[in-house]
C-alpha cells in the first residue's frame, strides 16, 4: 500500500494549505485496484485531492494514466477499493447504489466523452428525463427549463430533434445542458472534447468557463494540455498517482 500522507503533500495546492474555505470535493487516500488474470492492477494509488467551490480543475495525463478511473470513482460510477470521497459534505463512498444515484442526480452533473444521450428521446426530453427521475422540478416546468438550458448552450432551435440529427459538438452541448438539469453545484466531465474537433472543443470549454463564472465547480479530465490550460488549476496524473499541480497559464 502507498503512503497517503506523502502523496497528500505533493498534490495539495497553495489554496488548500491555509485556513481557506472547506473543499467541495475531498478525495482521501483513494486506491482503485482491478483484479486481472495477470494479477492486481493499481489504477489509482493513494489519491488525495481537494477541489474548492468555484474552481475549474483539469485533470491531465496520458492514456492509461488513470484519468477516467479517477472521474468514475468521483462520480460514483465506479467504487474505490479504499479511501474516502466526500462531496459537499456527503461521504459518497459509503452510499448504497440507489442512494448514490439519487445523490448524483441532484448534486453532480456528469458529461461523458461519447455524450451518452438517449437515442429515442429528443433533446428536450434528454434533459427533462434527468429532472423527471430526480423529481426536482414540477413536471409542467420541465420543458420550459430544458429549453432554457438548451438556449444557454446555444442549441435551443434543435430542441425537438433526436440526437442522431445533430453534430457531435451539439450533442456534447446537450449533454452539458442535461448535466445542468437539476442545477448541481459540481460538474464532472470525462474527456468532453475527446471526440470533437479543435474548434468545437474550444467552444465547449467556453461553455465550461461560463459555468464557472456562474459559480459552479468543474472537474474535467482531458488529455489535451492546451485545452486544459484554460482551467483554473491543472492536476496531472501518471501511473495512477497525482504528480503535481498547475495553474492557469
Amino acid at each position: 500500500m502507498f503512503f497517503c500522507e506523502v502523496s497528500r503533500i505533493i498534490v495539495t495546492s497553495d489554496e488548500t494549505t491555509g485556513s481557506g474555505p472547506a473543499p467541495l470535493l475531498d478525495l482521501r487516500c483513494i486506491v482503485k485496484v482491478y483484479q486481472t488474470p495477470a494479477g492486481d492492477l493499481f489504477a489509482l494509488k493513494d489519491i488525495d485531492l481537494q477541489v474548492y467551490p468555484g474552481e475549474f480543475v483539469a485533470v491531465v495525463g496520458k492514456s492509461g494514466a488513470g484519468k477516467s478511473t479517477l472521474i468514475n470513482v468521483i462520480t460514483g460510477i465506479d467504487r474505490p477499493t479504499s479511501g474516502e470521497i466526500i462531496i459537499g459534505g456527503t461521504p459518497i463512498h459509503s452510499l448504497k447504489e440507489d442512494q448514490l444515484a439519487r445523490w448524483r442526480g441532484k448534486n453532480l452533473g456528469v458529461v461523458f466523452q461519447f455524450f451518452q444521450l438517449l437515442p429515442n428521446l429528443n433533446l428536450i426530453e434528454n434533459i427533462t428525463i434527468a429532472m423527471d427521475v430526480c423529481n426536482t422540478y414540477p413536471v409542467r416546468e420541465h420543458e420550459k427549463r430544458a429549453l432554457a438550458l438548451l438556449d444557454q448552450v446555444g442549441i435551443a432551435e434543435h430542441g425537438y430533434k433526436v440526437p442522431a440529427k445533430i453534430s457531435g459538438g451539439q450533442q456534447q452541448r446537450v449533454a452539458i445542458a442535461r448535466a445542468l438539469a437539476n442545477d448541481p453545484p459540481v460538474i464532472v466531465a470525462d474527456e468532453p472534447t475527446g471526440n470533437l474537433d479543435e474548434r468545437t472543443a474550444g467552444e465547449i470549454f467556453d461553455l465550461f468557463e461560463n459555468l464557472v463564472e456562474q459559480g459552479r465547480t468543474l472537474l474535467v479530465v482531458t488529455h489535451d494540455r492546451e485545452i486544459a490550460a484554460r482551467a483554473t488549476r491543472q492536476v496531472e496524473i501518471a501511473d495512477g498517482k497525482l504528480q503535481g499541480i498547475g495553474v492557469r497559464g
Binding site: D98, Q116, L118, I129, C134
Partner: peptide
C-alpha cells in the same frame, strides 16, 4: 445513463 443522471432501481 439513466442511473448516472439519478434514476434509482
Amino acid at each position: 445513463i439513466l442511473r448516472s443522471i439519478g434514476a434509482v432501481r
